[in-house]
């Protein structure tokens, strides 16, 4: 069988530098595609709430459980997914699938992410009136939010610890400011990311300058 898929455990990072965007691996691609489909399908079927919710679940699944991705990579994917048009979970699936198995992986991940809502909503739209007035369903949906919140906070604690561990005041400040800006000042997520992009570019300019000065000295 053709070796299509990426396997992060055996990856050789240097190949990225040669411009090879997707790594080939020894793992059976059919098995990997199936795992990709299963994971995205289940995540999508159990995720209530907006895009960042599913992204934190993806992080838990693909970084912590399956160890397919690095943590920084998942954060980059999130930033890209947030900044592109379209639903965040779909955007994230496209990038994730592409990373794992190229364009086919993208298509499989999209299918996994979009099938559960399609099936669930199709059924609900037929039994619309009964669904809306069912008390037990309303309670179950309400209490599940507490569980979802717990999962997100678990992921956030891990991620925030990583940011603090860099011991760079700039990054810690960025994290705190972004949180305050989003929660207390009601800034748009897009604006927050754009502001940090500007900070990152400035940081790059300073970095290049100081390294040039060092080279001259």
């Amino acid at each position: 069988m053709k070796k299509l898929c990426y396997d992060s455990a055996t990856s050789d990072k240097k190949n990225y530098m040669k411009g090879d965007s997707i790594m080939r691996s020894k793992e059976n691609p059919a098995r990997m595609l199936w795992q990709l489909f299963k994971a995205t399908f289940l995540l999508s079927a159990f995720t209530f709430g907006g895009g960042f919710v599913i992204v934190s679940l993806m992080k838990k699944k693909f970084v912590e459980e399956l160890k397919w991705l690095e943590e920084e990579e998942m954060l980059d994917i999130t930033a890209i997914a947030q900044s592109s048009p379209g639903p965040i979970p779909i955007n994230a699936s496209v990038i994730l699938g592409y990373r794992m198995c190229g364009v086919i992986g993208s298509l499989v991940a999209i299918l996994g992410t979009s099938l559960p809502p399609m099936i669930i909503i199709s059924v609900i739209s037929v039994f619309y009136a009964q669904f809306r007035s069912n008390h037990v369903i309303a309670i179950a949906l309400q209490v599940m939010r507490a569980g979802v919140a717990a999962v997100i906070f678990d992921v956030v604690l891990n991620l925030a610890k990583k940011v603090v561990d860099t011991r760079r005041v700039l990054y810690i400040m960025l994290m705190v400011t972004a949180f305050v800006g989003k929660v207390l000042l009601g800034m748009d997520a897009m604006v927050v990311i754009l502001c940090c992009l500007v900070v990152g570019l400035l940081d790059l300019v300073f970095e290049l300058r100081s390294s040039r000065r060092k080279a001259v000295a």
Binding site: S56, E72, A79, F153, V156, A189, C196, G200
Partner: peptide, 16 residues
């Protein structure tokens, strides 16, 4: 990208 990551963490926290 390193400057974007802390922001993404904050955004996920606010969604939570």
């Amino acid at each position: 990208l390193s400057a974007l990551r802390p922001a993404v963490v904050a955004l996920i926290a606010s969604a939570g």
